[in-house]
Amino acid sequence: MTKITFELDELLTLKTTRAKVQVKSWQEAADIVGNLLVDEGKVQPGYVARMKEVIDEVGPYMVIAPGVALLHARPEHGVNMPCIALITLDEPVPFGHAENDPVDIVFAFGATDKDSHVPALKKLAKQISRSEVIESVRSAHSDKALCEAFVELCDHPNRTKE
């Protein structure tokens, strides 16, 4: 069996990146970031619906850091292949999180098994914890600049962006 790999910098492409999207609600942000994955055939439409249901049912705990949401459901909710999408919002929106609202950086990911995505998530968390990474993601005004900012930082986790 081929080992499933989940590499952030390989999975995030221009087609799954949108900078400075205008939305009125977190639901709309979730639809837009999720539908980038649907349009690429990476997840089923039901996967995006499930991501939103989990937030409705359990709460917005997926807002993992100030301003940053990491949305997902489970493999059995309709993931065709490992994937990640990223959007930034022109104006931040509240997810209902007591500490980390409002949110303007929204990731969505899908994994096809229980643990191949976990090292990548940890790497992502480490990047998100660095203010210069967040600044470079926030200051990207085109999809291309955003995708490049992200991939650059995944490639060189220890390098400070100038």
């Binding site: 989990v54 993992i64 990491l70 995505h117 976990v118 090292p119 940890k122």
Partner: peptide, 15 residues
Amino acid sequence: LCGMGFGTSMMLKLS
């Protein structure tokens, strides 16, 4: 612990 035992809780587990 997280809602799905899949993303957030796995990240926390590694930490």
